[in-house]
Deep mutational scan, measured.
Amino acid sequence: MGFKLLSKLLVYLTASIMAIASPLAFSVDSSGEYPTVSEIPVGEVRLYQIADGVWSHIATQSFDGAVYPSNGLIVRDGDELLLIDTAWGAKNTAALLAEIEKQIGLPVTRAVSTHFHDDRVGGVDVLRAAGVATYASPSTRRLAEVEGNEIPTHSLEGLSSSGDAVRFGPVELFYPGAAHSTDNLIVYVPSASVLYGGCAIYELSRTSAGNVADADLAEWPTSIERIQQHYPEAQFVIPGHGLPGGLDLLKHTTNVVKAHTNRSVVE
């Protein structure tokens, strides 16, 4: 069995187990497998329904001669939608809004960016022009300005110390501490036991640490421990890039980060 097929099978099995364990909360999309990078042309966006009122959005972007996937989250909030992270750029984010209108038909009224990198804030200006209120932590807003990236308009308070959590509509926002970046936030959907790890969490097929220019490698494993301790009931975990899975993604990420750190020390 090929690795790609095995990865998709694991996603399907995880979703099936969740649907059985929580039949009222989960209505997993039966329309197909989780979209992969090879299936999404740059400039297009796919939506994948995880649970009743919960979707991931998947886009792709060219970077350094390669094409990478990027995940975000959409959560229903009454007759409105909360968006977590842009679709990595203005063109993708405009396509995301169009796809949401086509498939869901509810307005996106608020959006949260989970850290300051372009795959999370690139497209904020498109959201703002569409009347979406954009939010991020003060740290993310400051770092985005320093980096020359787009800056969300509103500040999220109460997320300055490791372990801080605040309720934001249908989700809980959690600051686990520094990891992929010093400002990275985690998003949890309690009604569906869905954990969105953003770039602080890796997919299972990833074996290298990737972009760690703004990471705190020493603190990252401790931050992941905080996530595990705060959300032990999480059933569906979405990484910032690639295929979702279960809580095993947290341990896998820790292993990859520690291996990278150990290699760096040896070198």
Rank of each mutant, 00 (worst) to 15 (best):
M1A: 01
G2N: 14
F3R: 06
K4E: 07
L5Q: 12
S7D: 06
L9E: 14
L9S: 11
L9I: 15
L10G: 12
Y12G: 09
Y12L: 08
L13E: 05
T14E: 03
S16Q: 14
I17K: 15
I17L: 08
M18F: 12
A21G: 14
P23S: 10
P23R: 09
A25T: 15
F26L: 15
D29A: 11
S30K: 15
S31Q: 07
E33M: 08
P35W: 14
P35H: 14
S38R: 10
S38W: 12
E39M: 11
E39V: 12
E39Y: 14
E39R: 11
I40L: 15
P41T: 12
V42I: 06
V42P: 15
V42A: 15
V42M: 07
V42S: 13
G43T: 05
V45Q: 03
R46T: 09
L47C: 01
L47I: 11
Y48H: 12
Q49T: 09
Q49V: 11
I50F: 07
A51F: 07
D52N: 10
V54R: 02
W55K: 00
S56D: 10
H57D: 03
I58W: 15
I58N: 06
A59P: 05
T60K: 08
Q61G: 04
Q61L: 09
Q61Y: 08
Q61R: 15
S62C: 05
D64N: 10
D64K: 07
A66T: 11
A66L: 14
Y68V: 15
Y68S: 09
P69D: 15
P69M: 15
N71Y: 04
N71Q: 06
N71D: 04
L73D: 00
I74P: 01
I74M: 04
I74N: 04
V75A: 06
R76Y: 05
D77N: 08
D79H: 09
D79Q: 11
D79S: 11
D79T: 10
L81P: 03
L82G: 01
I84Y: 00
D85Q: 00
T86F: 00
T86E: 00
G89V: 04
A90M: 11
N92M: 00
T93Q: 00
T93N: 00
T93K: 00
T93G: 00
L97E: 04
L97G: 01
A98V: 11
A98W: 13
I100H: 01
E101H: 14
E101R: 13
K102F: 09
I104R: 00
G105S: 10
L106M: 15
L106D: 07
P107T: 14
V108Y: 02
V108W: 03
V108H: 00
T109S: 12
T109Y: 08
T109M: 10
R110F: 07
R110T: 11
A111N: 06
A111D: 04
S113R: 03
S113M: 05
T114P: 01
T114E: 00
H115K: 00
H115L: 03
H117A: 00
D118A: 06
D119H: 02
D119S: 00
V121M: 01
V121F: 05
G123A: 03
G123L: 04
V126E: 06
V126T: 08
L127E: 00
R128A: 12
A129N: 15
A133W: 09
A136H: 04
S137D: 02
P138F: 07
S139I: 13
R141G: 03
L143F: 13
E145T: 12
E145F: 13
E145N: 14
V146N: 12
E147G: 10
G148D: 09
G148M: 10
N149E: 10
N149A: 15
E150A: 02
H154T: 12
H154P: 05
H154K: 09
S155P: 12
S155V: 14
S155Q: 14
L156C: 03
E157C: 05
L159F: 06
S161D: 13
S162Q: 13
S162C: 06
S162F: 12
S162I: 10
S162W: 10
G163Y: 07
G163E: 09
D164A: 14
D164E: 13
A165L: 15
V166G: 05
V171Q: 02
E172H: 05
E172S: 05
F174I: 04
F174W: 02
F174C: 02
P176Y: 01
P176A: 09
A179V: 06
D183N: 07
D183E: 05
N184T: 02
L185K: 02
P190T: 10
P190C: 06
P190W: 08
S191T: 11
A192W: 05
A192Q: 13
A192F: 08
S193C: 05
Y196K: 00
G197W: 03
C199G: 01
A200F: 03
I201E: 02
I201H: 05
I201F: 07
Y202W: 06
Y202M: 15
E203M: 03
E203S: 03
L204G: 14
L204W: 11
S205Q: 07
S205I: 07
S205G: 09
R206L: 15
T207S: 13
S208Q: 10
N211G: 09
V212H: 07
V212W: 05
D214G: 10
A215N: 05
A218C: 06
E219Y: 07
E219V: 09
W220L: 02
P221W: 06
P221G: 09
R226I: 15
I227Y: 01
I227V: 11
Q229K: 11
Y231I: 03
P232Y: 08
A234W: 01
A234M: 07
A234N: 02
Q235D: 13
F236A: 10
F236V: 10
F236G: 04
F236Q: 09
F236M: 09
V237M: 01
V237L: 11
P239G: 02
P239R: 01
P239I: 03
G240W: 04
G240Y: 03
H241M: 01
H241R: 03
L243P: 09
L247Y: 10
D248T: 14
L250M: 09
K251P: 15
T253P: 02
T253Y: 03
T253G: 00
T254Y: 12
V256T: 05
V257Y: 03
K258R: 12
A259R: 12
H260Y: 09
H260W: 06
T261E: 11
T261Q: 10
N262Y: 10
N262G: 13
S264W: 10
V265N: 13
E267K: 13
E267S: 05
